[in-house]
Write a protein that binds this DNA or RNA. Sequence first.
DNA 1: GCGGTTTATATCGCGCGATAAAGGATCGCT
DNA 2: AGCGATCCTTTATCGCGCGATATAAACCGC
Lengths: 155, 155
Amino acid sequence: MSDSLPRPAELLCFSVYAAAHAMNRVYKPLLDPLGLTYPQYLVMLTLWDEDGQTVGQVSERLFLESSTITPLLKRLETAGLLTRERDRADERVVRARLTEAGRALREKALGIPACILGATGLDMAAAVRLRDDVERLRHSLERAAGEEPPSGGPS
Amino acid sequence: MSDSLPRPAELLCFSVYAAAHAMNRVYKPLLDPLGLTYPQYLVMLTLWDEDGQTVGQVSERLFLESSTITPLLKRLETAGLLTRERDRADERVVRARLTEAGRALREKALGIPACILGATGLDMAAAVRLRDDVERLRHSLERAAGEEPPSGGPS
DNA sequence: GCGGTTTATATCGCGCGATAAAGGATCGCT
DNA sequence: AGCGATCCTTTATCGCGCGATATAAACCGC
């Protein structure tokens, strides 16, 4: 079609990619004292919300493969924040349960969301609006990634 | 302040993080045939836009450290897409120049932006609007990451 | 209960990306 | 010359993220 290509800065996807990095750089000094990386923080958030979730539930909520979640949980287990045990009723299932240390860490994390909101330079309403826009984008992309069989749009 | 924490899905930053992954999943089948990863594609875009840029220029445009760009460029050099040579006038500077193969690859990439736009489910105007919103977010985050001296908000 | 399928996770292998920290080389200014 | 600033590389480290494969348990029809 066109014979020109955009600069990275013109691309929506690049802005998302770059924003994700920037976000990481903001989180790092906040999470370092807790000994967590950002993905680990996300896992802790889901368990603080509801303890004893299965690997599958965690991967579903974070949109990551179980082959990403399992090593993540193992690192958190090694750090003493949770335990992994098979469900008695269904032995295929592994559930992650917070330890006392895992629950205690929650207190230290309470201030983080406010710090982050401050760093975004947005008020709550604007942040929610943007979040929903980006979430819709994620959803569309996810759907598109699921299709795309050969190499053909409308022939 | 508050004694509750959000679920990941409620966070703006998580939506950005998840959208970045989703984006990668869409790009992957498009970039695999070109033998590029997404960050490598970004480097190629900047060089297709302007050949012979320095390491510093490329890192600046992609918001990445030079210690990330150097290995990236090396991989692209190994792939035969570019060469790295020191500037004659200023021997501190290393410039990346496309090879014939690097320039040729451009043709194969021409269709990608349209594919991506399709996958976002947005029309051009909406995509541009969202891009600018996310870019503003990135900018705020970047600025916040630059400050935050010790550990103190309001004491 | 017996095969066959599906589901849930683990495992393995892989490479890249990203950073921090330290070092080397060069430039530019005085 | 000398000295700080600039640009890049190197090294070391680490975690993430995925695909492919394997395993084990659960379900299902009969």
